[in-house]
Design a protein around this nucleic acid. Structure first.
Lengths: 144, 144
DNA sequence: TAATTAAAGGATAAAAAGGTATTAATATAT
DNA sequence: ATATATTAATACCTTTTTATCCTTTAATTA
């Protein structure tokens, strides 16, 4: 569904949100370890997220990544778009450029429904929401 | 959503179904041209589909690909599984192996609903269905 | 049976995604 | 000021996906 890069990004965002309370910031090492992702690869992804202003960081001792209040309002859709692009919004399942409401592919309308639900879910869930769910103890970000 | 290979495979299956009426079989060249896919790549994909018994072929002059009555009953899900595997059925959006009903990730239940709809659509639509839709003149497999 | 046609199969190459290592820059504590 | 911890930036490597080419095999037909 999403790229590996995108999966790592979402998990990293949620993990940081959950653990960087107050003054505490989260290191790449910790993110990688706790989200079960390759360290150096995560480092690269975090830079990307930072450039796109989805997350913030501070260098040096006690540095690391954190989310400010605004960042916590990012939705999963925001992350997916930042990493994988907006294909979910625009592309036909069969990859047909000419597939539209007027000239639909055989599965166009059914697929539009599926995508609508998917997008709704992606846009509804903010990082803060995920955070709260995990804090409730009923949801997890477990690796294995 | 699906791999390029898978998109080509679905388009090829539908195109052959639609055009190999009676004794007529469809060549790789024609499939590639009409579905806007790279010829030699399509050739590989067709071999794959054939090995998995989703399509049939005959060599030599007037040879090519065709679908028998049974083949026409293949669903889009069958093609997706043959080419991309059954990840749609089994994998968590965040790639978490431990994500289950008992230990769900923050978006598990919402995503299960989305996947259920997607799978329903994939399993409902047979190649014959797609074929009939296109013949009705209201649906298309247009390239551009 | 020779010539022709079309798929099958194997080998390779180009591009994209995924992953690693190294060095530079920066902030903090002492 | 200096040592140190930590991200930033960059360059490189590996694997997977996508795409191409060439040779072989099978079927048809003249």
């Amino acid at each position: 569904m999403f790229s590996k890069t995108c999966e790592y990004a979402i998990k990293a965002m949620i993990y940081v949100a959950q653990n960087s309370t107050g003054e505490k910031r989260i290191s790449i090492k910790e993110i990688a370890r706790e989200t079960d992702a390759p360290e150096y690869f995560v480092a690269k992804i975090m830079q990307d997220l930072r450039k796109r202003k989805l997350i913030h960081s501070i260098k040096g001792p006690n540095g690391g990544f954190y989310l400010n209040d605004h960042d916590l309002k990012s939705t999963i859709a925001d992350i997916v778009i930042a990493i994988d692009g907006n294909g979910i919004y625009t592309e036909c399942v069969l990859g047909l450029k000419a597939c539209t409401e007027k000239t639909p592919c055989p599965v166009h309308f059914e697929f539009v429904e599926v995508k609508k639900n998917l997008i709704k879910m992606l846009e509804k869930n903010t990082i803060r929401d995920c955070n709260e769910k995990i804090e409730s103890g009923k949801f997890f970000l477990k690796k294995e």
